[in-house]
Design a protein around this nucleic acid. Structure first.
Length: 259
DNA sequence: ATGTCTTCCAAGGGAAGA
């Protein structure tokens, strides 16, 4: 089975690209971030016609997440129950698989603007709340996948310019410590379970020919729990959609699981 | 590199967020 995550920076603009990508990449589940639309504008019908179920948690202008699944999704939970948050950033659901129930958590992590800002403080609070909630979710659901736009480069090799961008947003020790604390719960960065090309990124700034020069960051991740670790057979970043006209600034990340 | 893209509000272009 295959799972994918993709920040599409407006579903209204990118819906045709998402449908085309699903046609070429018939994954079992796709987590979308930055829908930038409200639930009443979510194109459930378009996904249904493509053979997918969809659950959404939208918001006007900003944020918004969705899970697109081949099979129906059960026990849908929106946002982090323990955090009082006006922003729509998390949607979770359970998929029935031949291997048993699989819990999917799809999240659009806080950007954080810059270290020291109020938005950065919100990022830290949000990350702490996510950690505590994932810890509890893992007790209930040993087979768990946490995927999304993490807005964190886990290590220097995940940035095109770790020296020039040292201590800037996506690169701070505080953010990376939170990432490590998620791993410490018994999660594994699926991408790093395999040999990968150097300078592998999932996001490139629209400005200054960022993609063409491969000036990017690897900030979109798929973490799998201990119980799933042995089943992971591949993890790749699909750069192809970034070459489309009117692309998202992010590329999809895809993980393959045995069975 | 005040660089680009998207949306909102509200009627044109500026502000905000990423």
């Amino acid at each position: 089975m295959k799972l994918a995550t993709w920040n599409i920076n407006s579903l209204k603009v990118r819906l045709p690209q998402v449908l085309a990508w699903l046609q070429d990449n018939p994954v079992d589940a796709l987590g979308l971030q930055e829908l930038k639309l409200t639930d009443d504008k979510f194109p459930h019908e378009a996904f249904s016609e493509a053979g997918y179920h969809s659950s959404c948690f939208g918001q006007k202008t900003y944020n918004g997440v969705a899970l697109i699944t081949r099979a129906p999704a059960a026990d849908v939970v929106r946002n982090l129950p323990e955090l009082d948050d006006e922003q729509a950033r998390v949607i979770s659901a359970t998929l029935d698989t031949p291997q048993g129930p699989l819990r999917l958590v799809n999240a659009y992590f806080v950007n954080g603007q810059e270290p020291g800002s109020e938005k950065f403080a919100y990022k830290m609070r949000w990350l702490a709340a996510l950690h505590d909630w994932i810890k509890e979710q893992l007790r209930q659901h040993p087979c768990l996948v946490l995927m999304g736009d993490f807005n964190v480069t886990p290590e220097d090799r995940d940035s095109w310019d770790p020296v020039g961008l040292k201590d800037t947003i996506h690169h701070t020790v505080q953010e990376r410590t939170h990432f490590q604390q998620l791993l410490a719960l018994g999660l594994h960065d699926a991408y790093r379970l395999f040999e990968q090309p150097e300078k592998s990124f999932s996001w490139w700034d629209y400005r200054q020919l960022g993609f063409q020069k491969n000036r990017g960051l690897r900030i979109d991740h798929i973490l799998v729990s201990d119980a799933l670790h042995a089943q992971v057979t591949a993890c790749t970043i699909d750069r192809a959609p970034r070459k489309n006209p009117q692309p998202s600034d992010h590329a999809p990340v895809v993980v393959s699981l045995q069975g």
